[in-house]
Amino acid sequence: MPVTLFIPTALRGFTERNAELSLEAATVGELISALTQKYPDLRTHLLDEKGELRPFVNVFVGEINIQSRGGFAFPLKDGDVVTLIPAIAGGARG
């Protein structure tokens, strides 16, 4: 089923400057997989060595942050709007 994925400015350098993509996926995991297959250079910045989402990337389906709602297993339905939002953090000391 097609869903719309919004790419933040920071990652558009990896998506041929596309801000909005339409991809087929039944779960958030499938969506991220479809995205990184289409744009392999994005994988390093989205996923860690274990294939898990890096902590500085939030995935929102509508207004739901999927992190506490099943993560990659979160189901998608036709027409869903998914947004990648940077989780900006840091600091002087760990």
């Binding site: 350098g13 910045h45 500085f56 953090a89 600091g91 002087a92």
Partner: peptide, 21 residues
Amino acid sequence: HSHPDHPAAPSARDLERALPF
């Protein structure tokens, strides 16, 4: 962001959490 009582240089945590662009 500011680094209170710390140099204006990226910490290990800044690097770990940094995004491209």
